[in-house]
Amino acid sequence: MEEKTTDEAWDQLLDRLQTLIGKRPGDLNAVLFLIGVQELGKGPKRFSKEQKQDLMHLAVCRVLSQSGYYTFDGYDKDGWPQWTLSKPVPHGDLLEQEDLLKEHIIRYFESELV
């Protein structure tokens, strides 16, 4: 059987998320936001623009931690997970960075959505 391309696996993930949450995420940032909310663990609520950016950063750290790019350091006084860069994230153009994130997000959901 042929391996799925990243784009095929990404589309299947978006379909699965649509089934789970009732709405298909529009882009990579929407999926990162969902992961950030999940990782924060405080349930759905209203977030400020800055908090939304923080949630997406949290998600990036979490998914890239699978390959050792980030290490979990614990929680801050407000209960937000804190991460430290462990090794440099590979440089690349925007599409290469997006593919790296998509591949890690797909792996994240494969382990989280059993």
Rank of each mutant, 00 (worst) to 15 (best):
F47T: 06
A9G: 00
V114Y: 06
L95T: 14
L55T: 10
A59N: 09
K45R: 15
H104C: 05
I21C: 03
R16A: 11
S67A: 15
R107C: 08
H91D: 14
G41D: 06
V114D: 12
D54H: 09
L113D: 14
L13A: 07
L34K: 01
D54T: 11
R62V: 09
Y70K: 03
L58T: 14
K49G: 10
L64C: 00
V60G: 05
I105V: 12
N29V: 07
T6D: 02
D76E: 06
V114E: 15
A9S: 12
F33D: 06
H104Y: 00
I21K: 02
K4A: 14
Q51Y: 10
L17R: 04
D93A: 00
T6E: 07
D73G: 01
L14E: 01
G41M: 03
L58P: 05
G43T: 07
F109R: 07
G43F: 08
L32S: 02
D73F: 04
C61R: 04
W10A: 04
L20H: 04
K42C: 01
L13D: 09
L32E: 06
Y70W: 11
L64R: 06
P90N: 01
L100D: 08
D76S: 04
K49H: 15
P44G: 15
K52P: 00
I106G: 00
L58Q: 11
F109L: 01
R24E: 00
Y70R: 03
S67Y: 08
M56K: 15
P81Y: 05
A30D: 14
P25M: 02
D54L: 11
Q97A: 11
L14I: 04
R24W: 02
D99C: 09
D78Y: 11
D78N: 14
G92W: 03
T19C: 00
D78G: 01
L32Y: 02
M1A: 12
L55S: 02
F33C: 02
K42S: 14
R46Y: 10
Q51V: 11
V31F: 04
E110C: 06
T84D: 07
P44Y: 12
R24V: 03
K102G: 01
Q97M: 13
K42A: 15
L40I: 09
K87I: 09
H57P: 01
R107Y: 10
I35V: 15
I106C: 05
A30F: 04
W83A: 03
P90W: 07
L40Q: 11
A30I: 01
H57M: 13
L14G: 02
G74I: 10
L34V: 09
E96S: 02
E112H: 12
D99S: 11
I106Q: 00
E2H: 04
L58C: 14
Q12S: 13
L113E: 14
S111A: 14
P90C: 01
D99L: 12
E96K: 00
Y108P: 00
G79I: 13
L94K: 13
P81E: 03
Y108L: 03
L40M: 10
V31C: 02
E112N: 08
D73E: 15
I105M: 09
A9V: 05
C61E: 12
R107F: 09
V60H: 04
Q18C: 08
P44S: 12
L64W: 08
F33N: 02
L94T: 12
D11S: 13
P88Q: 13
T84L: 08
L20K: 10
G36T: 12
G74Q: 08
L100E: 00
G26S: 13
G26M: 05
L85T: 06
G74W: 02
G26W: 03
D15L: 10
K23A: 07
